[in-house]
Design a protein around this nucleic acid. Structure first.
Lengths: 230, 230
DNA sequence: CCCAATATTCAACAGTCGTTGAAATGGAGT
DNA sequence: ACTCCATTTCAACGACTGTTGAATATTGGG
């Protein structure tokens, strides 16, 4: 479906195109096509503008990607960094559950970006990896310190490995966001909307039992899991 | 680096090119470039043959992908299907650990393919997804039945959700294979060769404690985790 | 009203892509 | 020696890619 006959005039279409609109388009295309499949031209089509505009505002594909990364990951890093506060009256268990909720709140809608980040880490694409590391590792550090605190306070087993546990907690939440919306309906006949929260609760129960000093301690902050009757 | 001056003659280069050689090339390129980045032409370069040859033996990109899928996933599905045998004298815990070992043995070398499968599930690319479902879901079914058996025998908690637990066990093992070789050296200073088995043991201990009726029961089949001194 | 700055589009470059149809090659069978 | 056939390569198609430089439109200030 090419543009209608190119009788279009040049110059600004109406007024200034908000950059947020361009990032929205980029996010949508990343989600549909993945990173390598997402072309500058496709993003421009989605935003209904010329590809050159993306070079004017950002600097090519990588610039767009970094801008999108900042917009999405910024709030996550900020909120996670608050969780390590020793003054926080909540238990470490409850704060670890908050990690899941923060990820869910800010990342559930960014399918393409999650996949892009993961792919870049795996493939270690030289140019981009550094820009990712700067944004991801602080978040992981916050979680790691929280687990350290849990060990100090005796809530978490002494033989827990904080680095690996951080990885397990965070990665599985992202895998749930990525895969359960597809697998839930397909293999269990549960809608994506119901399946994701169910999986998150099931995951956190398993995770906490796996690292807790007293695995049977109830988790009053964790919503009950509804029955499965598809 | 284009081919040397095109004085090449046509026809068979030496003898018949083994299809396995073409699949090896495809796997290598998938691992380097990801699915969307892997072009037929790049695979042909890797295999040192003409792109047309890939159309002759397989039918385009999708055909190559399915052939690669069969070659890699076939042994995994076969070995997993044996684990559900009620006559097997091993505990369910030990057999679940075997799941990890089977994945590791057959999938550790297939970086590209793992990522492709995951990406296709996420994006639900219509044409390919069915071909993946037929090969993946039997494997997941075997693990699910094993967990059912564990619940029946009282080894596994009654409130365990087999579908989700299957997902957790299998997906995390694949995430370990994908990400730990990169993250281990980067964030913990541990070589990829040591980090992956360490992560697998840590993951299985956590997982088993998370679902076991008696979480403190020792797991004599599980190798000791060495100390971390990077 | 004009001018300058900003925002946007157009047109074109040189590549690469997937795919196909025809040509060429080598070996097996006769 | 000849033919046939499976295998491989060549050449070309149209479409799409990232990127750039110049042209154009809009806006705000003087």
């Amino acid at each position: 479906m090419p543009h209608p006959p190119p009788v279009r005039s040049r110059g600004p279409k109406a007024t200034k195109v908000p950059q947020a609109h361009l990032l929205d388009a980029a996010q949508a295309v990343f989600a549909r096509e993945g990173i390598q499949g997402a072309s500058i031209r496709a993003i421009a089509r989605e935003a209904d503008c010329d590809p050159s505009l993306l070079y004017y505002h950002f600097h090519g594909k990588e610039g767009m990607f970094e801008a999108l990364l900042d917009r999405t990951l910024g709030p996550v890093v900020a909120e996670l960094s608050l969780l390590g506060d020793p003054q926080d009256p909540r238990s470490v268990a409850e704060r670890l559950w908050t990690v899941i909720r923060i990820y869910h709140t800010h990342l559930a809608g960014s399918a393409g970006l999650r996949d892009v980040v993961r792919g870049e880490i795996i493939r270690g694409a030289e140019g981009i990896q550094e820009s990712i590391a700067q944004r991801i590792f602080p978040a992981l550090g916050s979680i790691g310190r929280l687990i350290d605190l849990g060990i100090e306070r005796g809530e978490i087993r002494k033989d827990t490995l904080p680095l690996f546990s951080t990885f397990f907690l965070a990665r599985m939440e992202l895998e749930i966001l990525d895969l359960i919306p597809v697998l839930g309906p397909h293999v269990a006949g549960i809608s994506a909307e119901r399946a994701v929260p169910m999986a998150e609760r099931a995951w956190f129960r398993l995770f906490w039992r796996g690292i807790a000093t007293h695995p049977e301690t109830p988790l009053p902050f964790l919503p009950e899991t509804e029955e499965i009757h598809p």
